[in-house]
Write a protein that binds this DNA or RNA. Structure first.
Lengths: 185, 185
DNA sequence: TCTTGATTTGAACGAATGTTCATTTAACCA
DNA sequence: TGGTTAAATGAACATTCGTTCAAATCAAGA
């Protein structure tokens, strides 16, 4: 019962203050427990970070694979764009941590996380590649375009606020317009 | 003589390990001095971070204002794109810190940094606004496009390596192609 | 060589860190 | 109710942290 609450507290605190700046005592206090009790649920602080990032990336990939990924490259790119935006504004803390705390992973954990991240990246890259092959897309450089698209889409998290000016549907539409233009002449 | 070397060591270490994970003793050791000696050059660790971010953003803005900022909106956007890419791949550590360590600033310092960052953002937004006004550009949402462009351009730092496949000139060209398409129908 | 002024050292400070563990408390079934 | 197991406490541990400061060292001009 307390396990998930620890994860949630760690996620929130890591997102706000950063992994290195958050103490086990702060996490415990957020859960309403003493620091020692946390160690019934996690072997150490590092595992808390790794589990957050790992489960985030796994859920991201599972959710993507559950989308309708059929159709023309253009349709698939639209699906990816809308999925990515939607997923990211729904889980801002997990996304933020996955971007900001890579350097606080142990080398072994970093390697595992990188593998997951790279697999997701390749999903987009493959769509672009297929679109290049059938001439739906014309991009100046496949790899750079992949990275540029991901940076652009993920960047939504740095400024989007749920109670802001734009609805989620409008946001997806705005981003799709920009993505679509980027890959066509 | 030691002042700049402290700044350089702090910049490198903060970029690699993060502000919170770097100790004054590590910085001192990098400079070849004991921790106490640092305090002849900085009042505290926080000032070290603030000065790094502040001088980076001020140099960024000064450098931009020194560019040729005349011409049509399209020409100005091209100048901005190439300048931004060039500046960012030349100073990866300063850029990285300015993005990652915002939350480790005191509230007062954060406010000052935000003002600088916002001023730079507005330079791009103004170019887009002018292009919208004279119908050079058609964008679905001015503010979102500004943020999306900045995220896309700044993202270059997460993957670009000086000894990589692409030259700086080629990189500027690839990014300009993508930016140009994004703001035209 | 002596003096003055600026730097650096190295020890010390109080506080905070992640983690452990014997002991206490709580939960639950017989 | 009594007995068993699981969970939480709270103190303790060895380190490390940012920062201070008297004392030692250094640089340079008289």
């Amino acid at each position: 019962m307390t396990g998930p609450r620890i994860t949630e507290a760690a996620e929130r605190l890591f997102a706000v203050h950063g992994y290195a700046a958050v103490s086990m005592r702060q996490i415990a206090s957020e859960v309403g427990v003493q620091a020692g009790a946390l160690y019934n649920y996690t072997p150490d602080k590092q595992s808390l970070l790794y589990e957050l990032m790992s489960s985030h990336l796994q859920l991201l990939m599972e959710s993507w694979l559950a989308e309708n990924r059929s159709g023309t490259p253009t349709e698939r790119l639209k699906t990816f764009t809308e999925f990515h935006i939607r997923y990211h504004i729904d889980r801002p803390d997990a996304v933020f941590i996955a971007y900001m705390e890579l350097r606080n992973l142990t080398p072994a954990n970093f390697a595992k996380i990188e593998t997951l991240r790279r697999a997701y990246e390749l999903e987009l890259e493959q769509i672009l590649r297929d679109g290049q092959a059938d001439r739906s897309f014309v991009v100046p450089d496949l790899r750079v375009t992949t990275m540029a698209l991901l940076a652009m889409l993920t960047g939504v998290n740095t400024w989007y606020r749920e109670d802001g000016r734009l609805s989620r549907a409008r946001l997806e539409s705005v981003y799709w317009t920009m993505v679509r233009r980027m890959v066509h002449i």
